[in-house]
Design a protein around this nucleic acid. Structure first.
Lengths: 345, 345
DNA sequence: CTGTTAGCGCCTTCAA
DNA sequence: TTGAAGGCGCTAACAG
């Protein structure tokens, strides 16, 4: 009974008639306590509603059993799955997850990361937008930082990432085989490594006859919605999007403009968030393995926690192409840009 | 320079040629330090890359500046909006968010809540599924627990919730006015207070000529998908869903069965998650104020932190009806159940 | 096997 | 205004 938050180890010791050391041993599961004594302690603890103060434990042991996670935007479902998997894996090992939302701001990301490192055993930074220089700051911190979806040469941080390049090349190949030659690409945040990889792939796709025009958008539904008109100016037969959210927004705008998808315009996303298959038409996209990312991220963390460093480098995770109904062969006669699309009345 | 995580206040004190007390004063922003000394300390701290150890601070002050948040399922966008708002509001006050995912399991929920209370200043439990009895356990803990979306008579915990009852009545009224008389309701998790409220509303809707049949589903897309066939057995002209995710799943199954929405079947959700408007057809639903929930939850927490208790009770938050294209007048002639729907070949 | 004791890193009186 | 010193609650040697 009583406010368990206030019951201290000393009170339990008194109640059980032992020293605090014995109580501590019982609570931490040490085997070296006489059974009857241990039982007495357990009963006293239960009656008082004692729960060890995690903060004090943390200070004494130097271990908080908390992992920090920094994501660019908590509103993006893509990160849910990563977080959920990471959280589950960590939870299974008795670790808790401290989450921070950087709001797509590289500076905030850096600040949050620094702050979190003061109170957690390790930090996972997902799709970091901060500069390579900023990242380097974390290299010497006992290697307590793990990167997700960011590969940077010369940065000695453990990482696990999705192979955006290959996946984007596959999406492009799919469109090329359908007969598309001119596509618009609604680009993601500039600082995003994934964005850079995806665009790099598209640039190379030119060798296969696919000309891509990049239009700045972002990573959100609104960004996709807002970039469509500009994208239509280049008279593409397909719109490729940085991710599924952007594709959702683009789809909404296309429908508004009366453009048939995929009849008049093919549309592709990236990530394969759960909703992608429920769009109308269902989205052709690349199935980024979010769960796997989260799982492996925790694997890296726990290896670091155990050995001081990961046992091995992780290969890039594949994001297989998922062909659904939002892509088709281009119309024989390209559609005339509408008034709304060209901006001319 | 150096591993900032390991720089201690003592080292800064030595470097600056002062006592640790002075360093502490400077770091906590006390005004009582001679300017030049303070400057010396600040420089030393910066050079060493010193950052106070949050755990030690927590132990010394008894304040961790962390709020815990327990949600039923980290994969549901609904909760992300709440979390995002809560996280933002808390962050603005220098608080961090410790998140736990209960996986829709009442026991895990209770365990996680107990555990979190050991390491945070306050706890927000969102849409708790645990029993009233279990909740009561938290009443005496210095009132450090705030409830979201759970109203229970006789439980003295601060809370903020959405008025599911009224909202569901409005959705039902909307359907009734369109001419519907027989609807199926894909029910949410039994232990959910919101579910209970929503069903209570539907029961009362009978008075207005709307007969609802409840079909157990759940809170996820899969649950909705899986419950449609059973729901069609009662030959409804509309399917009402516990939430938008369920509606998404139901929609997918209806499309699969070749049932036209809303031509042959009206469909409603609840919550108005961002994707609801991007469904095809866009979903008629109730706009649950997630952001507001998160914001007010933090408001309650900070009032508790400041005064020991909230200044006032919070009224139920309205969830306005949002009519979109997924609802229409029922077909004059009800559709014959398909083979798939009845289970007969 | 159990108790005593020295920290963990920081904050905060209390004296000076 | 500054420093010395006593905790915060717990763990982990070290004795006994």
């Amino acid at each position: 009974m009583g406010r368990s938050g206030r019951v201290t180890i000393q009170q339990v010791a008194d109640a059980a008639g032992v020293s605090i050391a014995t109580v501590s041993r019982v609570m931490t599961g040490a085997e070296t306590v006489r059974p009857d004594l241990a039982e007495r302690v357990r009963r006293a603890a239960a009656e008082l509603g004692y729960r060890p103060n995690a903060v004090a434990q943390g200070l004494a042991t130097g271990v908080t059993r908390m992992v920090g996670v920094v994501v660019p935007n908590l509103a993006n479902p893509y990160f849910y799955d990563v977080i959920k998997a990471l959280n589950a894996a960590a939870g299974a090992d008795g670790y808790r997850t401290l989450i921070a939302d950087a709001n797509e701001d590289p500076n905030e990301e850096l600040e949050l990361s620094r702050g979190l490192l003061r109170q957690v055993d390790a930090l996972v930074v997902v799709s970091p937008r901060m500069s390579a220089e900023a990242l380097r700051e974390f290299e010497d911190r006992s290697l307590r930082v793990v990167l997700v979806n960011r590969v940077a040469i010369g940065i000695g941080l453990p990482a696990v990432s999705v192979d955006s390049f290959t996946a984007m090349l596959e999406i492009a190949g799919h469109l090329a085989r359908l007969g598309h030659t001119r596509v618009a690409y609604l680009a993601g945040p500039e600082q995003s490594w994934q964005q850079q990889e995806r665009w790099r792939a598209l640039s190379q796709a030119a060798a296969f006859g696919l000309r891509a025009t990049s239009v700045p958008a972002g990573a959100t539904i609104d960004a996709g919605y807002g970039a469509v008109d500009e994208a239509l100016r280049s008279q593409p037969t397909a719109i490729m999007c940085h991710n599924d959210l952007v594709a959702f927004g683009a789809l909404a705008r296309l429908i508004e403009l009366g453009v048939d998808v995929p009849g008049e315009m093919s549309l592709t996303g990236f990530d394969d968030i759960e909703f992608a298959r429920y769009a109308t038409p269902p989205l052709t996209t690349a199935a980024s393995p979010q769960r796997e990312l989260g799982r492996v991220a925790w694997e890296l963390v726990s290896e670091i926690l155990a050995n001081g460093r990961p046992t091995a480098e992780r290969p890039l995770l594949p994001a297989p192409l998922v062909v659904r109904a939002s892509t088709a062969a281009p119309a024989t006669r390209p559609r005339r840009p509408s008034a709304a699309a060209t901006g001319r009345p």
